[in-house]
Design a protein around this nucleic acid. Sequence first.
DNA 1: TGCTATATTCGTCGAACGTCGAACTTTCTC
DNA 2: GAGAAAGTTCGACGTTCGACGAATATAGCA
Lengths: 101, 101
Amino acid sequence: MVQDAYQHPAIADVTLPEVLHALSDPLRLSIVAALLAGGPRGWGAFDAQVAASTLSHHMKVLRHAGLILTTRDGTRCQVALRPEIETRFPGLLATVVALAE
Amino acid sequence: MVQDAYQHPAIADVTLPEVLHALSDPLRLSIVAALLAGGPRGWGAFDAQVAASTLSHHMKVLRHAGLILTTRDGTRCQVALRPEIETRFPGLLATVVALAE
DNA sequence: TGCTATATTCGTCGAACGTCGAACTTTCTC
DNA sequence: GAGAAAGTTCGACGTTCGACGAATATAGCA
């Protein structure tokens, strides 16, 4: 784990193709959908069938796309949707997640 | 050019991650945006700064994602948005293209 | 002070992507 | 029929992706 806080990009630097690419992976899309439906949660709450390193990689992609906010809580991570993404791309997440069923 | 019609997938077979991936490229996104804004048009109406083979490749990606409909007109191609995509993923294109400015 | 749990980073692998140029097919025009 | 024009396909190249295991770092607990 990194000793300090995570690197989150300025929301203005996030591009639409970047966000769409982040959402174009089924696992990442399901993570975002779960966050939108159920609110923030811990790391292991996503029972993804991938190795921890792979999940960490996907979280980094989502973080770099400005979609999630990661904070530490002891040895655990709390993951939440970044609220600014709604002002940056209004309606995008709601539309995409709704279509993902 | 292929001697017969182009291969278009059944709209039901198109998946959301597939569509998002198709839209996550700036060139492809601009093509879809132009079609949505201005209606069908010919091949060369997109002054893309890429080789013809590259443009052909991107068109194939869009076609396989169920986003566009390609028809021949002599040696030229007419490209149009696939109307069924709106019933398959209602509001998606309008939302994404609006956010792309 | 260890030991355990959690998450990141690194190196690696095969597959897919985006780009190009060259060759090819089909159609139109002269 | 010959030539030009429009797209497609192919192979090549370098980059990125998604996956994994191993090694590492940090925090909590005994």
